[in-house]
């Protein structure tokens, strides 16, 4: 069994999870007027982006703009990472429905910590504690082959992938315990690996 965990271990240009996670929109306030980019704010007819406008930008755009030497926009934290919500997660993370808060709760959260906001470290701690709390429940579900779909749907994308991996491995172990393995099969990688035909190479 090829246990390749697809989640990117560090952000990189080609990682789909990263692209999807940074697609999330954040509320930004313009700090410096930008010439000719009024079209980004659809509520005005203005040709330029004027100071003080608030608008929603995807994170991949907002982040570089907030990190320039003369800051162009200032990013406001999304509601689910603010203090009020952090307290909810600290109280008991395991019952919160993370999928409702955004499909990439952890990914997006750790992107947010790069903003050097004063809450950055608090967010990081919160993400870690929430992950730990939920992990114990998640491992139990996977080990006991829980197939309650309503429970599984409450997981964030990252957790869901972990759960599916664990579930698959557990199911296989239980099958072995009850009847033993019959034949070893070639790993997925080998099966899917297509050899180039000699004829094609020769041409």
């Amino acid at each position: 069994m090829e246990t390749r965990f697809k989640h990117s271990y560090c952000p990189n240009y080609f990682s789909l999870e990263d692209i999807l996670a940074t697609q999330e929109r954040v509320l930004c306030k313009v700090e410096k007027s930008v010439h000719g980019l009024g079209c980004l704010d659809q509520s005005t007819e203005n040709e330029d982006l004027v100071v003080g406008t608030t608008l929603q930008l995807p994170f991949w755009l907002a982040f570089p703009l907030s990190q320039t030497r003369v800051r162009v926009v200032s990013v406001e934290l999304p509601k689910i990472y603010k203090e009020a919500f952090r307290e909810v997660l600290t109280a008991d993370a395991s019952i919160v429905d993370l999928s409702k808060l955004g499909r990439y709760f952890y990914e997006f959260g750790s992107h947010l910590t790069k903003l050097n906001h004063r809450d950055s470290s608090a967010i990081n701690t919160m993400l870690m504690n929430a992950f730990k709390d939920r992990l114990r429940v998640l491992i139990d579900w996977a080990q006991n082959l829980c197939t309650d779909i309503s429970k599984v749907q409450r997981l964030d994308t990252l957790e869901k992938e972990l759960y599916l991996e664990g579930f698959k491995a557990r199911k296989e172990l239980i099958a072995w315990l009850s009847e033993g393995s019959s034949k070893m099969c070639a790993s997925e990688m080998v099966v899917n690996h297509k050899k180039r035909k000699r004829a094609v190479v020769d041409i």
Partner: peptide, 17 residues
Amino acid sequence: PLLPHALDQLFRLQNGR
């Protein structure tokens, strides 16, 4: 692979990125 993967992810969250 559940536990090693989970710990990897935890490590990643811990280190910030």
